[in-house]
């Protein structure tokens, strides 16, 4: 296997790379590729940014949905039966 993997291979393995579960030789190959390839480095930055972005977009407090209030009412009814 070549030391430096292709863009396709790198992008298929970025989560494993981030989690540190790849064999050392593979990690080194991807590390090197990311220093030479702006596109793959951009994809990596995107994967890293996604959790924070998702938390920011979906995180803010929302009004309590009716379904949640119904679940509470049903639960309290059950408890009192």
């Amino acid at each position: 296997m070549r030391l430096m993997p292709s863009c396709h291979d790198v992008q298929m393995e970025l989560t494993e790379y981030l989690e540190g579960t790849l064999p050392l030789r593979r990690r080194l190959g991807i590390w090197l590729h990311l220093r030479l390839c702006r596109v793959c480095a951009g994809v990596l930055r995107g994967l890293r940014a996604l959790p924070l972005l998702a938390r920011q977009l979906l995180g803010p407090a929302e009004p309590v949905p009716d379904a949640a209030l119904r679940a509470l009412a049903r639960m309290q009814q059950k408890q009192s039966d």
Partner: peptide, 26 residues
């Protein structure tokens, strides 16, 4: 997966630039 496009060797067919993510939703 929506990746690529790649050439026969698995490399990008075209160069992309300006791929800076704006992580701050604000």
């Amino acid at each position: 997966l929506p990746l690529g496009p790649f050439d026969d060797r698995g490399h990008h067919q075209e160069s992309e630039h300006g791929t800076e993510w704006q992580v701050e939703a604000q």
